[in-house]
């Protein structure tokens, strides 16, 4: 089973009638994910994906009609916070927010509202979750990974694809791969997911792909030292990034020493976590032991 969600979880897609929403809903469905509904305000009553999936105006009505338990959000940045509020308010168990570029103050309020609920949020600016051969929520290409025993957590998209693909080419496989998102203010961090990987019988090793900015890696290292018994590996990017400049991801900016790659790499080494120094090195490091 995947961590976080079960393989047959019924999923709705917020923003399903948009270009990206339609494309990725199709891809998820093709991978075997149970897409049961779409939500686009004003498009309720339409049918999409070969006229087989109903579209609703609100998340609540979609849940009532289909029993959806998770949402994947492709709503544009200016309305994404509202989409998350709606999903939380409707009591969905899981939200995966793919949208990038959400204003920070919007996200602060979403995060506080989230804390009053039982909903678990992944993202925003997340590629989502892929449990090879089982379920895919988000935009991670299905063909890059095969089933296996490595749990992967990351702050980025394509870098994760690259790594998982290299692992596959070297004969390795992945239990679940999940991107927490490239923004500074996120739902779940590394820690919550590390805990799940530690408890997941299908995961035997864990790879954390981190980057500059924020405290996610620091919190993770603390947690790993105290609570994770499975072999854990790490890779950190942004060694060559200049201070004070935002490197693509809104969260990837060195604002104080603690945000730099060097600081994070030191923490990781001192905690005895195995560190890969390049992408090339990762498969060998993970597969030899």
């Amino acid at each position: 089973m995947s961590i976080l969600v079960r393989s047959d979880i019924p999923v709705l897609v917020q923003g399903i009638t948009g270009k990206e929403g339609t494309f990725h809903a199709q891809k998820m469905q093709g991978y075997g994910t149970r897409i049961v509904a779409g939500v686009t305000p004003g498009k309720g009553g339409d049918w999409v994906l070969d006229e087989k999936i109903p579209v609703f105006d609100t998340v609540r009505t979609a849940i009532e009609a289909t029993g959806a338990e998770a949402s994947v959000i492709f709503v544009p940045a200016d309305r994404a916070a509202d989409a998350m509020f709606e999903a939380i308010d409707a009591g969905l168990q899981f939200i995966f927010c793919v949208t990038e570029g959400i204003p920070m103050q919007d996200m602060m309020r979403v995060k506080r509202y989230l804390a009053t609920s039982d909903t678990q949020l992944v993202g925003p600016n997340s590629p989502g979750l892929l449990s090879p051969g089982k379920v895919k929520l988000g935009i991670i290409p299905g063909e890059i990974a095969q089933p296996g025993n490595i749990g992967v957590i990351s702050r980025s998209g394509t870098l994760t694809y690259e790594i998982v693909n290299e692992i596959r080419k070297a004969g390795g496989g992945v239990s679940t791969c999940i991107g927490i998102g490239g923004d500074p203010i996120l739902g779940m961090g590394f820690v919550e997911l590390l805990e799940m990987f530690e408890d997941d019988p299908e995961t035997e090793k864990i790879l954390m792909v981190g980057e500059i900015g924020g405290r996610f890696e620091e919190d993770a290292v603390k947690f790993i030292s105290q609570h994770v018994t499975k072999p854990t590996y790490a890779f950190i990017v942004g060694k060559s990034a200049p201070e004070g400049r935002r490197m693509g991801h809104a969260g990837a900016i060195i604002e104080k020493r603690a945000g730099s790659a060097a600081y994070k790499i030191d923490l990781i080494k001192n905690a005895g976590i195995r560190l890969a120094s390049s992408i090339e090195e990762i498969p060998a490091l993970l597969l030899k032991s």
Partner: peptide
């Protein structure tokens, strides 16, 4: 394409003695 992959590429350039002109 992608911020993480771009940073990884720059790091690898630096490790190999190269100097990126940009991200």
């Amino acid at each position: 394409n992608g911020a993480g992959l771009a940073m990884a590429t720059l790091d690898l350039l630096a490790d190999n003695g190269g100097q990126p002109a940009n991200f």
